[in-house]
């Protein structure tokens, strides 16, 4: 939940969950925990939820790990879901492993694709039907792994905001709302962590909704060199993004990071400067309508998904792009 509204990532997961449920011929159920949740189910039905379980209790807001885990563990033990999806937010990544540990089920973090498929275990001579394929880049993005949980349920996965599409299933879709008896699941010893203070701010940068993104990587070389990217973004009316390597190197703040462990973007134009293009990064920008790669390495992997490749020194090319843009735009 996000100020009375169901978070985008949850609606994205409902959209994906609807596809999976239809494919598996089962119900799509949602769990929402918090306080003062009246009418919340109406936000979720259009995205295809058949049942919405609502845990409405003062102890569930603001979020703390143990009370949420207690309710989910209890509910999952009763309902035995096949698949459980969580947003890979700080909340989902705090709660998911706690639940998976308690239920001894497998959890795959930060999936970029979810599919249904079979698996044959040749050694054991067993065939598993309709497993959840949890697909994610691994090893710093140098490989893509398909993970399965053959024997344990639920099959759990987290997915970052923006990775899946959010789509109304049917505006008139109606499901059932079920109020949970929170006291049944929550014990006093679950309420030991206290939130003393909270400062939530609207994200300062909004690269997710920007139609032009000028992104820099480790190849930019320094925080100072990023200046030219801000200059170009400003004249083009775009935002500055960054690869993980650039964020790790301290060139730019994490809220600008594009990629699997950052933000997924789909801009009209993506200008990748000094970015080599590991899949960890490209997973978050490959659906850009147009990609321009500027790199002094003619063999950088990013070049393969770029529409235009400019081989050369970013620090020397960007100022000329600004110059010619100013000259040619009205």
């Amino acid at each position: 939940m996000d100020e009375g509204k169901v978070a985008d990532v949850s609606l994205e997961l409902l959209t994906k969950g609807r596809t999976l449920a239809t494919r598996l011929n089962c119900k799509l159920e949602a769990v929402v925990l918090g306080h003062k949740l009246k009418g919340v189910e109406d936000q979720m039905f259009p995205y295809g939820a058949d049942i919405v379980h609502i845990g409405d209790d003062a102890r569930l807001d603001p979020y703390t790990t143990l009370p949420h885990a207690a309710v989910i563990n209890g509910l999952f033990t009763e309902q035995k879901p096949q698949i459980a999806l969580l947003g890979a937010s700080t909340m989902g990544r705090d709660l998911g492993p706690r639940v998976s540990s308690a239920l001894v089920s497998g959890l795959t973090a930060d999936c970029t694709a979810l599919e249904i498929g079979d698996h044959e275990d040749k050694k054991a001579g067993k065939v598993y039907k309709d497993l959840l394929y949890q697909i994610r880049p691994a090893f710093g993005g140098n490989i893509v792994a398909t993970i399965i949980n053959p024997d344990c349920r639920p099959q759990m996965a987290t997915v970052r905001e923006g990775v899946m599409k959010k789509e109304i299933f049917s505006a008139g879709h109606k499901g059932k709302a079920v109020q949970l008896d929170v006291n049944k699941y929550l014990k006093p010893e679950d309420v030991v962590v206290k939130v003393i203070e909270r400062h939530m701010e609207k994200s300062r940068v909004n690269i997710k909704n920007s139609s032009i993104i000028v992104s820099g990587g480790y190849g930019m070389g320094s925080k100072e060199n990023f200046r030219v990217l801000y200059d170009l973004a400003e004249v083009l009316g775009g935002e500055v993004g960054a690869s993980r390597a650039a964020v790790d190197a301290g060139y730019v703040d994490h809220d600008r990071q594009v990629g699997q462990t950052g933000i997924t973007v789909r801009p009209k134009l993506y200008i990748a400067c000094g970015i080599s293009g590991q899949i960890q990064h490209t997973a978050g920008m490959e659906e850009s309508s147009m990609v321009i790669a500027i790199n002094n390495d003619p063999n950088a992997p990013i070049n393969k998904i770029a529409d235009y490749v400019i081989t050369g020194d970013v620090m020397e090319i960007i100022p000329r792009m600004i110059k010619y843009y100013k000259k040619n735009s009205k």
């Binding site: 497998g106 893509v144 398909t146 053959p150 344990c152």
Partner: peptide, 21 residues
């Protein structure tokens, strides 16, 4: 509980890129 079903090395689908010097 989690098993690695397959590992693929990353191979990019090459687009037709225009290369500028």
């Amino acid at each position: 509980p989690t098993k690695v079903k397959t590992i693929e090395n990353v191979v990019f689908q090459a687009k037709e890129s225009k290369v500028l010097s």
